[in-house]
């Protein structure tokens, strides 16, 4: 089981109060933002603040991500110069439209890692895809660099580019979400869903998280600590799912012992994909702490 990335919480990059406590709310990742949440006049201040915070504060193992300004802006290059040296786990590239955007960032990170004596490949990349062109190029983007660990859909900019607005059922971004997922899965990296902006609409938020999970996303960007727990709940396997998965894995173990070719459970055929899904449920149950494998129990 890879790293959990169910929740990535946005933290405005020029807010010391939020930066110092960002890790205590329990999100799997925290994302310090130097881009849209920072005004043009405060870009320098946010860069220094996030740099110093990352160099000093112990985030107790919570994954750290920094959303930098694009390399096509006056701030992007210096953001990289600073942030790579502060060694967050990941740099998030905004508004990625083509594989060359990833390659350019990758090359720059490599150069700075080299200058600063940081082992090559330490700072990973993720790319936010937020335009029609980016969606069309999403697979090329997803496989552009081994440094890239995830792609995310940024829906607010995307719907603007598409000349529409966001709706609660998300019909206007269904194709884009699916395209990002297909690209991520084909490239073997994580896929992260977009933010839900109305923190007071809990029902709408939960419905959207359920949809994102059902589509296959690994997690969601969140903008408020209140949004963390509902996502984690939805991404945690239920007792029923765990029990069912244990039975699947026990059935396959039994069949392997007996050397029988065809396996069935409760009259249903159990084949490879079902076993894979059951294994994934158990892995997720273990890392989320809702299931503890007993000594010597070893399921399949």
């Amino acid at each position: 089981m890879g790293k959990l990335r169910r929740t990535m919480m946005y933290v405005p990059g020029n807010n010391p109060g939020m930066i110092k406590d960002a890790h205590i709310f329990g999100s799997d990742s925290i994302m310090f933002d130097l881009e849209d949440s920072v005004s043009v006049k405060e870009k320098d201040a946010a860069r220094f603040l996030v740099y110093n915070a990352l160099k000093t504060i112990d985030y107790e193992g919570v994954e750290t991500v920094v959303r930098v300004n694009g390399l096509d802006t006056p701030y992007g290059k210096e953001d990289f110069e600073a942030i790579v040296r502060a060694k967050p786990n990941i740099i998030r590239l905004p508004k990625t439209e083509k594989p060359e955007d990833v390659l350019e960032a990758d090359k720059l990170i490599s150069k700075i890692e080299d200058e600063a004596g940081i082992p090559s490949g330490t700072v990973k990349l993720m790319a936010a895809i937020e335009s029609a062109l980016g969606i069309i190029n999403s697979y090329e983007i997803a496989k552009a660099s081994p440094r890239l660990v995830a792609i995310a859909i940024g829906a607010e900019d995307f719907v603007t580019d598409m000349k529409t607005t966001r709706s609660l059922d998300g019909v206007e971004i269904l194709v884009a979400r699916s395209q990002v997922l297909l690209a991520a899965r084909a490239a073997g990296i994580y896929a992260l869903d977009t933010v839900f902006s109305d923190v007071n609409d809990e029902e709408g938020f939960i419905n959207e998280v359920k949809l994102a999970k059902q589509l296959g996303f690994d997690g969601k960007s969140v903008i408020n600590p209140r949004q963390i727990e509902p996502v984690h709940q939805i991404y945690t396997p239920t007792q029923n799912e765990i029990e069912k998965s244990i039975r699947v894995l026990e059935a396959i173990e039994e069949a392997e012992r007996k050397g029988s070719g065809v396996i069935s459970l409760d009259g249903k055929m159990i084949d490879g994909p079902i076993v894979d899904r059951a294994r994934r449920v158990i892995d997720l149950a273990i890392v989320t702490g809702v299931y503890v494998e007993e000594e010597g129990e070893g399921i399949a």
Partner: peptide
Amino acid sequence: ALDCVIRAR
């Protein structure tokens, strides 16, 4: 402010 915030400012 934490030391790192003073430094940044």
